[in-house]
Design a protein around this nucleic acid. Structure first.
Length: 573
RNA sequence: GCGCCCGUAGCUCAGUGGAUAGAGCGUCAGGUUGCGGACCUGAAGGUCGUGGGUUCGAGUCCCGCCGGGCGCGCCA
């Protein structure tokens, strides 16, 4: 497209852009209406102003250049086509045929759109590649591969994960999955507090239950506290007493138990972490100290009222922020800056933090501190995940970990299952607030779109089983087969080949709604194909094999799209 | 009061400045002597909270207003 534009300028058909004006980006998109072709570009519309020409005129000039290219490519294709006609077995490797021009036709549409149609051979070559390398289908190479640290969940281990934590867990996991599919490396990280007052608080609560004393009002009251108390080994208790600070010692033991439970719950969701980072280690290893030194060296710290402050306001924050309190303890923010230094020391290109929207007030200080310490502010991104309002039978479910009033993640999974839960969160933008009615989710689980997509996959798997019984298998050679020359095949094939661009868009946006929407669309397209085209027909073995190849490509695409979402693709259901 | 997020079909939500604003659920009316009916076809349903502005073009960008959520600690 860009080449054609430049050639049109070179040949004098179009005026050059006046010097000093920014040339418009060449945008090619997928039109909503199939009548507008497979691809469309608004280039001519964008050029109208700088060129001072009517959009239709510009579009016509570019279209003429594109048409010339298509014609030239068609001529050069003739020989290889004759070769393959002599013997299919000697054809080139699937998908690695001659570089065919992917375009078949170009049209100009008012007010100046350029509508392009893909060549059948290009589509068929793509289908061949899907069948030849199913595992890599949908994975794309990043123009600039990055190593991205994604920190998420990071709930303190003072109680089991509850459904309020669920969204962050899914959003972080999904982000990592799409980044990896788009050619980036990720490190999934869980950050937790292992030395603060809440650990002692938890220990005191467990101890109280164990000894039959009343749990302090500001202690933890959930059933899990009683379970911990019951499971507390005698030797730990004795050692705790001997150490002189039993609440602390029991707290350390209990919080590790809770942390391991959290890890197990997340594993049930299909969420795993590469690094479990404790806040205490940031102090023991001197990272907080290093961060303070860096800020001090940059002149961004000062003392006031006995506390140590960071000049966050100098970087655009509302006010300065305390790093170390007057009592000598570091604030949570103090830990954060140490963590920044520690993370950057591991060589990440990007640090993504996934936080609840209620933490938005702390975003500025974190990014400002990164800048003040000499790191790239742009490399530090905070993805704020909006609140989920959990509702049960019309009433909001309030949750308080200390009061022990919450629905655990494990409960949620038992009630509605991991696949529907993943679909629910994956199909919504992370920044939009959503209602989650648990009863409704249970009731509607049979109507959940995730089953619609899975059903399409299972149906194809069933077709393939049927085909095997009839000794029919997918054809291996599709280019030039005539598979797409008419009817429902072309529609399905065009839907199938879109996966990589959907993945690219999802990775660029860091969101997965496009992926669930695409999976639904592909399933719909397949179901329509199934209605219109009989796949397994022993009377037509050649056509059956071609359709089997197409349907198998669709199955792979559905499975990979679901896989990207962490959702299973069953062969029967 | 200041800052951030949000407002799209009855409900739950999509919608990188582009062509007639979409999906699922719900509602209504239909469909299979064939590979899985957890399927398919069609219909009804919208002043995109509101008023201006920018643009060839605005649900999308800018400003004001209305409504809702969150934040504004030497808490975590």
């Amino acid at each position: 497209m860009e080449r054609a534009w430049h050639r049109a300028v070179a040949s004098g058909a179009l005026p050059a852009i006046p010097a000093g004006t920014e040339p418009p980006a060449v945008e090619v998109e997928r039109p909503a209406d199939p009548a507008h072709g497979d691809l469309a570009s608004n280039l001519a519309l964008r050029l109208a102003r700088p060129c001072r020409r009517a959009p239709l005129e510009i579009a016509a000039a570019i279209a003429a250049e594109l048409a010339r290219e298509i014609k030239a490519a068609r001529v050069s294709e003739q020989e290889p086509e004759q070769d393959s006609a002599q013997g299919p077995e000697q054809g080139p490797e699937p998908g690695s045929g001659p570089a065919v021009n992917p375009l078949a036709a170009v049209e100009v549409a008012p007010p100046g759109f350029l509508n392009l149609r893909l060549a059948d051979a290009a589509l068929e070559a793509t289908l061949e590649r899907i069948l030849a390398e199913p595992a890599s289908w949908g994975r794309v190479a990043a123009a600039e591969p990055r190593h991205v640290n994604v920190e998420f969940v990071s709930a303190n281990p003072t109680g089991p994960l509850h459904i309020g934590n669920a969204r962050g867990a899914f959003v972080g996991d999904l982000l990592c999955r799409v980044l990896e599919a788009a050619g980036h490396r990720t490190t999934r990280e869980y950050y937790f507090n292992d030395f603060g007052a809440q650990v002692r608080n938890l220990g005191a609560s467990v101890l109280a239950v164990r000894t039959g004393a009343p749990v302090p009002d500001d202690g933890y009251h959930g059933d899990y506290v009683a379970e911990l108390a019951g499971g507390l080994p005698g030797d730990v208790l004795e050692a705790a007493d001997a150490a002189g600070d039993p609440a602390w010692a029991v707290g350390v033991w209990a919080s590790e138990r809770v942390r391991a439970g959290i890890e197990a719950s997340l594993a049930r969701l299909g969420v795993r972490f590469d690094v479990w980072k404790s806040e205490g280690s940031l102090y023991r290893e001197g990272w907080v100290e290093q961060a303070v030194e860096r800020l001090a060296a940059a002149g961004q710290l000062y003392d006031q009222d006995g506390a140590l402050w960071f000049r966050s306001a100098a970087f655009g924050d509302d006010k300065d922020r305390v790093v170390r309190k007057s009592n000598g303890d570091f604030t949570y923010f103090g830990s954060d800056i140490g963590y920044l230094v520690e993370k950057f020391s591991r060589g990440f290109d990007r640090l993504v933090y996934i936080w609840g929207a209620d933490h938005h007030g702390t975003v500025a200080r974190l990014r400002n501190a990164a800048e003040a310490m000499g790191f790239s502010k742009a490399a530090v991104e905070v993805l704020l995940v909006a609140w989920v309002r959990f509702v049960r039978e019309g009433h909001e479910v309030s949750m308080s970990k200390r009061a022990g009033e919450f629905i655990t993640l494990d409960d949620l999974l038992s009630e509605i299952g991991a696949d529907p839960a993943r679909w629910f969160f994956g199909s919504r933008g992370p920044s939009s607030a959503i209602d989650f009615d648990i009863e409704l989710a249970k009731k509607q689980s049979n109507e959940n779109p995730v089953y619609y997509v899975q059903y399409a996959h299972a149906r194809i798997a069933s077709i393939l089983r049927k085909a095997a019984e009839a000794d029919l298998g997918p054809a291996g050679r599709l280019v030039g087969s005539g598979l797409l020359t008419g009817g429902p095949e072309a529609t399905l094939a065009r839907a199938v080949v879109r996966l990589p661009e959907v993945v690219e868009d999802a990775a660029a946006a860091g969101e997965t709604q496009g992926l669930t929407a695409y999976a639904t669309e592909l399933a719909t397209t397949f179901h329509a194909f199934y209605r219109d085209a009989r796949v397994v027909d022993p009377a037509e073995p050649d056509r059956s094999r071609l359709r089997l190849a197409l349907v198998e490509a669709a199955r792979i695409t559905l499975a990979n799209a679901l896989g990207l979402l962490g959702i299973s693709a069953p062969a029967s259901m």
